[in-house]
Simulated assay, not measured.
Amino acid sequence: MTAAAKPEATTADASRDPRIDAYIERAAEFAQPLLRQLRDGVHAAHPGISETIKWGMPHFMYGGRILANMAAFKAHATFGFWQGEAVAATGKAGEAMGQFGRLTGPKDLPSAARLKAMVRQATALIDAGAPPRRNRRSAEPKPPAAAPDFFREALARHPAAQATFEGFPPSQQREYIEWLAEAKQAATRERRLAQALQWLAEGKRRHWKYVNC
């Protein structure tokens, strides 16, 4: 009696970065299938695409350049091409990161065929040496974010945190301001404020956990 044949060992897909698997697993439950569908669709469109983590977010690379990126937040996910509206003229640029607005469910995703066409257009632009194009709306500088009174008063009582905050560029200041402003309940706001002051006193930006992941 012959022994049953053992299944052949499979090698890991070199185009996929295990850090992105971990990123997706950490994402909110609603976002996980969205990120997986986008990821699979991008890779299905072109065999030469690889992955990495930049600025704490998953990025898709092609020809040594950034092709697209995706991210998950507490209540929405995002996806966008670095060629901007030259690839994805959705009319939603500026609503969130990328060109597809706030992704909260499958209905917000482009179809498989459309995603494939956009990915191939983006790779063709990179092959042609086209520089990245910023979206018209995102190219407009945002006005400086105004810190709410309770945050300014708290910073005044914590010199170390205030020094860090004032040393940040406007984009990093905005990360803290918007996070605090999104708190709907007083208890949530107080918890976030205490956490913000601690991180700032330690010299940390809002999304410090994902930097250099």
Rank of each mutant, 00 (worst) to 15 (best):
P144E: 13
I177C: 03
S50L: 02
T164A: 02
A128G: 10
M70G: 00
P7W: 09
A117T: 03
K116Q: 11
A88S: 11
Q83Y: 10
R120K: 14
D40R: 12
L125P: 01
A3C: 11
T164V: 01
G80W: 08
L67R: 02
R65L: 06
Q185E: 15
P106D: 06
H158I: 10
F100C: 06
A147L: 11
G203V: 11
F81V: 03
A124C: 10
R65W: 01
Q198H: 15
F79Y: 12
C213S: 15
P144L: 14
A86M: 05
A12P: 11
A68Q: 07
R39I: 07
D13T: 03
P18W: 10
P110Q: 06
E29S: 13
A154G: 08
L34N: 05
A128H: 07
P132I: 15
K116N: 13
R133I: 12
G98E: 00
G129H: 05
N135P: 01
G63A: 10
F151I: 08
F79R: 07
M61C: 09
V87P: 03
A147I: 09
W208N: 13
E140R: 15
S111L: 09
E29L: 14
L180M: 10
I126R: 08
N212K: 12
L115I: 11
W55A: 12
F30E: 04
A154S: 05
R16C: 10
E175Y: 09
Y62Q: 02
A117P: 01
A28C: 00
P143I: 04
G41C: 07
P169I: 09
L125S: 05
A68G: 08
H158G: 08
F81C: 08
G80P: 08
I53T: 06
K92H: 04
R157K: 15
F79S: 08
G129L: 02
R102V: 09
K54I: 04
L180H: 08
S50K: 00
P110H: 14
D21T: 07
Q83T: 09
A28M: 06
E8L: 12
A9K: 12
Y210K: 12
A154I: 06
F100G: 05
L193Y: 02
M61L: 11
G167E: 03
G129V: 02
H43V: 06
Y210L: 14
W199L: 14
F168R: 07
A3W: 13
L115N: 00
R114W: 08
E202T: 07
E29D: 14
L125G: 00
A130C: 14
N135A: 12
D127A: 06
Y62M: 03
A75I: 11
Q99L: 09
T164E: 02
A183G: 13
A89K: 10
P148R: 03
G91S: 13
G167I: 02
P144T: 13
K116D: 15
G105V: 04
A96T: 04
L180Y: 02
R157Y: 10
N212G: 03
M118R: 00
H207W: 10
A68D: 10
E51T: 00
A9R: 04
I177G: 00
N69A: 15
P33R: 02
L115C: 07
R191C: 02
K204N: 00
D21W: 02
R102G: 05
A196F: 04
